[in-house]
Design a protein around this nucleic acid. Sequence first.
DNA 1: CTGAAAGCGCTTACAG
DNA 2: CTGAAAGCGCTTACAG
Lengths: 355, 355
Amino acid sequence: MKSEEIARLAGVSRSTVSRVINNYPNVPAKTREKVMKIIREYHYEPNLSARVLAGKRTNTIGLFLFSIYDIKSPYRIYGNAYFSPFVDAFVDIGNSMGYYMLVHTVCKPGDCWRIRQTFSQKRIDGGIIITTDESREIESILSDISHPVVIMDYSPSQIEKTINPKARIGVFNFNDEKGVNSVVDHLVSLGHRRIGMIMGRQTSYSGRRRRECFVKRLAHHGLPVDDRYMIKGDFTWETVVPEIEKLIFSHQLPTAIVASNDAMAIAAIETFRRHGMRIPEDISITGYDDSPASAIVKPSLTTVQIPFFEMAKRSMDMLSELIESDKPRIMVCNADVGFVIRESCCENLHEEVAV
Amino acid sequence: MKSEEIARLAGVSRSTVSRVINNYPNVPAKTREKVMKIIREYHYEPNLSARVLAGKRTNTIGLFLFSIYDIKSPYRIYGNAYFSPFVDAFVDIGNSMGYYMLVHTVCKPGDCWRIRQTFSQKRIDGGIIITTDESREIESILSDISHPVVIMDYSPSQIEKTINPKARIGVFNFNDEKGVNSVVDHLVSLGHRRIGMIMGRQTSYSGRRRRECFVKRLAHHGLPVDDRYMIKGDFTWETVVPEIEKLIFSHQLPTAIVASNDAMAIAAIETFRRHGMRIPEDISITGYDDSPASAIVKPSLTTVQIPFFEMAKRSMDMLSELIESDKPRIMVCNADVGFVIRESCCENLHEEVAV
DNA sequence: CTGAAAGCGCTTACAG
DNA sequence: CTGAAAGCGCTTACAG
């Protein structure tokens, strides 16, 4: 079934059928109804490729995820408390806005060409990129592509530096200053003065931001930053365990630790407990993400709540706006974050040593 | 950049460029290399719509998920231990096979037309459907569509009854007989004789299968099926809590319960504990799925392990086979399952009453 | 081995 | 308001 047959059956030309399909105003109600009747009767759907080839949009959005785990890890995206709620939200919101969502996982920088290809084959009208690393590959993509792109968790200044003049780009970040401040202030109010941090990967914008904000907030409270308590992490569970063990064996412990995400907070809790320490009595720990797991673990995590759904909604609105207009521009957004108090922090029960 | 320009630059016709792109044999190596050089130099990518319109495949697979939660639940797909590993696996495997994956969530039966539309607009070469309910809508889709489809967790006989003669359909199920038997046998070996079940939704194939296999296996051990211990559930956490409370208040408890998925097992554990019961000392509980949460909860769950990744791999192979050949046929597959023993079951410590 | 030409199924100026 | 015609960028018989 094609538009020509619909035209014949309705006694009009293909042009008119097209006008009806595209809901153009210059069709009298009567003609429109006559054509619609045939269309409905035959369950006619215009061929997407033909429409796109003739200049219409694809109505498809690409969602590109950069896995922090390599291809062998079984739960690398959807077992991940950061990516999975985003995917969920983006797919649902995109679908409810009438878009089709093309989801693509990039496991190594060498696969980035796939993103380019998706654009250059004209498969999509625009893209969402969710990374955990700022990289040359991404900047090169951004500078090549003329389609609209919204990128999550990326340094706005970095974007502004590299993109081409006719780019239509949105950048969406977390309000990490607020998030980190909530957490630090909470711990300080509980009497903690030796506060450490499990850092996220420093190649990511939020990883760096959270560290910077942490250092700044300690200073604001007149507290020192002790390098021994700045624990290396990359947002994954595995890398944190040995670092925490190193800390334990050093016998130089902070009384509280701010983790840069929930996964690392949970890894730390498990490790401390395995070595006979009590959480939160011996050491308070906070998370970041408010993942489902953060409410299930014992003790449940005091953590920063990221509004994934709302972020996805606003990102999609941004993207859709960039698609509709072809004015080059860069939009920057920050998502508000919340703070959830649960069981993983308590008052500082240690006799305080001078710091 | 289009094929015509490549042709001009390479000094050949568009036909030859097309032959090179499609890797046809009737092009001398020299000509091929000459053309490839230009293609690479200009990063040329053929326009997808034009190719598809001219008869090529889209190289895109649709992945359709029927949410068991409604649109308002924040983690309805990716916080779900059943859907999320599937999505993860399908996207990754599809991508690594060179397919693009179109992910679509259907939240209510009324949205099913979207699936049809995806096919009739010729957006995809084939589809994967993951449901939790056997429904008229799905059967109607299956009977209309001439594209290949693989459907997970569906009664093969139901499929065979409804589809059209030129259908290319794959059905993929779990080996629930083995899964349920492992669990029941384990509990029996621990001395349990009053064993209950939290059922999954009976509109789903696996929900019914697990119940049937459970009843059968109890009979095999000469144990009675007590209707009071057949607890209603629909695979979600929420509906189980009140049912378990009803059971507790009845003061008629089994010594062990087989849950039809992990989410319901965890809900049951939480509910029992809230009412002062110890797991597994007072009551043993098993799960089904081997979700990440099943290893994190306390006590960790003894559960049936579903090989999501392998299932997705084999499903994609099936689908790809159905796409390549246009012989109508129905393929049926069963996935092997594993069994993981953790902390949620122990020996029956109750004085056994006559049953 | 290779090119000219038709065709895929739409949309959109253009002319009326 | 409406239709005939050109065009979107490919692929593929067909002829040579």
